[in-house]
Design a protein around this nucleic acid. Structure first.
Lengths: 108, 108
DNA sequence: CATATATGCAATTATTTAGTTGCACAATAT
DNA sequence: ATATTGTGCAACTAAATAATTGCATATATG
């Protein structure tokens, strides 16, 4: 809980994934979020802290309430990683194509 | 290490993400994988077990060597979740559009 | 002003995790 | 047959995590 956070760690926890989904629909206070779960307000608050630390979520104070907003942009980090992954995969298939091409040429 | 695995937990660890990237290029044995990292063969082996448990990776025995292949399809689980998330976001913006429309009408 | 509400923070605990070391076993190589 | 190699598995340790309980603080409401 002290270490540097990243998005992948943030979405590893099912409760946090659910919170992200909730906030995708609209900003909510910790209490409002907690009502959707079995876990205590404090537990949710901790998840919010983690989400805040890795900037998936940002706070907006409104009187004594704090509204948690989603920073949807941060989710792109995951997409970026997936893209990178897919690029590697594609490269492999390209190489496979090349091999198949060579086999075809040899056959002639 | 006993609990039911899921893909999100699997990609939470940076070493496992790196292993996934390696295997995206092509199948490798545990020893070959371990050579790419500072951690021991056994540590890598544990990561492979976790990746196997959640079906991101599958084994193929060849003599005394075991080749670990990527099951690229499993990665789609992550994409699916992201899609679901984006759908929620889009819905929110649609509603926002509706509100803006209503404001526009009222102004008339 | 007194009370209730919304929230964060600290300390504690139980569980999970990542990593190490050492051993077992099967498939090769000599 | 014996040695070597590739691998998994078990026991252990250290660190991180999730959740609880209790307290502190600031803003509202009567």
């Amino acid at each position: 809980m002290e270490t540097r956070r990243d998005v992948f760690q943030a979405i590893a926890d099912p409760t946090r994934r659910a919170i992200i989904m909730l906030l995708a629909v609209g900003a909510l206070t910790p209490n409002a979020i907690a009502e959707h779960f079995d876990s205590s307000r404090q537990a949710v608050s901790k998840h919010l802290r983690i989400l805040t630390e890795c900037e998936i979520v940002k706070q907006e104070q409104q009187g004594r309430e704090i509204h948690y907003h989603l920073n949807a942009d941060k989710m792109k980090d995951i997409e970026k990683w997936l893209e990178q992954f897919k690029k590697l995969l594609a490269k492999r298939f390209d190489q496979l194509d090349t091999v198949l091409e060579q086999l075809k040429s040899k056959r002639k």
